[in-house]
């Protein structure tokens, strides 16, 4: 329902972004108090069949007028999480038994307050927010996902990075007993990702522990993952156990595996093709006709300034 409403707004009618968000929030609120079935006739057959599971709530960030949240069913069954298998539906099947408690997160490197946190203590200081983000995979498919989490910057500020800290390196759990995909050498385990410090400090960069208002399902990277909405999905590392402030650019796993196809920056860019496919368009999960991919996945206004003067063709 939320969606149909949004689609009714023509871009030209949006005079102010704030007004638009207010409208979205109002609709979300309406949904929350159970007026969800207000206009069932306006739902397309496709929409109707796919509207299953919980209702998406949260503040939309950078959504386009025709963006609507991807159903829970798709968000939790179509996953790239090689730690649980290389098929899209493997994680949903193989991650069921995965235990995420107890869970320790190590924060170290160039910080004045390094620590090993129990997950609960790691989360405690932060106010969780529901934010609806666009998600674009390097494989040219996309979703709109209502994450729950907090800005990574808040957590980093608490750790107090020193002046030597230039990058942040993230590490996924390494435990082949619990993550069966790690028994195969399809990638160089553990999975490593990294961001430049300014990217990590950007308010859009989200530490995620929930989706659709619920705890993160295992296949989505429980108990703690990252989401960087203007970068290809593989940057948004899952099941994080370590956050390290470093001086040199971290060497991320996909870059190690195939540096001609996957770089460090991995900013969504319709003008720079993947060697094996175009990045100019994308398939929104649940839709048939392709959409045009937006520069920085639609977050250019917020993030483009971080890359001025950089050759984005070279720094893919």
């Amino acid at each position: 329902m939320l969606i149909r409403r949004a689609a009714d707004i023509r871009p030209s009618e949006i005079t102010s972004e704030t007004l638009y968000w207010n409208r979205r929030e109002w609709i979300a609120a309406a949904g929350a108090i159970g007026v969800a079935a207000m206009s069932p006739t306006s739902l397309s057959a496709l929409g109707a069949a796919r509207q299953q599971g919980p209702v998406a709530r949260g503040t939309p960030y950078g959504l386009q007028p025709n963006d609507k949240p991807t159903p829970w069913e798709d968000v939790t069954n179509y996953n790239n999480f090689y730690e649980f298998g290389t098929g899209k539906d493997d994680p949903a099947q193989n991650a069921q038994e995965f235990t995420t408690r107890p869970w320790t997160v190590k924060v170290d490197g160039f910080v004045t307050k390094p620590a090993d946190y129990q997950l609960e203590d790691f989360l405690k200081p932060h106010k969780l927010e529901d934010r609806i983000y666009r998600h674009r995979c390097v494989e040219a498919w996309s979703m709109v996902i209502p994450w729950r989490g907090f800005s990574l910057s808040e957590m980093l500020k608490r750790a107090e990075p020193t002046s030597q800290a230039k990058f942040v390196e993230f590490t996924t759990l390494l435990d082949p007993r619990r993550m069966p995909g790690q028994r195969s050498s399809v990638l160089d385990w553990p999975y490593i990702e990294g961001l430049r410090l300014d990217e990590a400090m950007h308010p859009l960069t989200l530490m995620v522990n929930g989706v659709y208002g619920r705890d993160l399902p295992n296949q989505n990277g429980a108990p703690l993952r990252l989401h960087v909405p203007w970068k290809y999905g593989f940057k948004s590392i899952k099941s994080i156990v370590r956050i390290r402030l470093v001086e040199k650019e971290p060497v991320n796993t996909w870059k190690v595996s195939q540096s001609s196809e996957y770089g460090f920056y991995a900013n969504v860019n319709p003008e720079v093709d993947h060697p094996r496919w175009s990045q100019a368009t994308e398939r929104r999960i649940g839709e048939f006709l392709k959409r045009k991919t937006l520069m920085f996945n639609g977050y250019a206004d917020q993030v483009a300034s971080m890359y001025t003067g950089m050759d984005l063709r070279k720094n893919y």
């Binding site: 057959a45 496709l46 929409g47 109707a48 069949a49 796919r50 069913e73 798709d74 069954n77 179509y78 899209k88 539906d89 498919w141 398939r283 999960i285 649940g286 048939f288």
Partner: peptide
């Protein structure tokens, strides 16, 4: 999958 939104071929039926 394309016309009725089922998921016989999963979330990305075309691929």
């Amino acid at each position: 999958d394309i016309l009725a939104g089922t998921r016989y071929f999963g979330s990305n039926p075309v691929k």
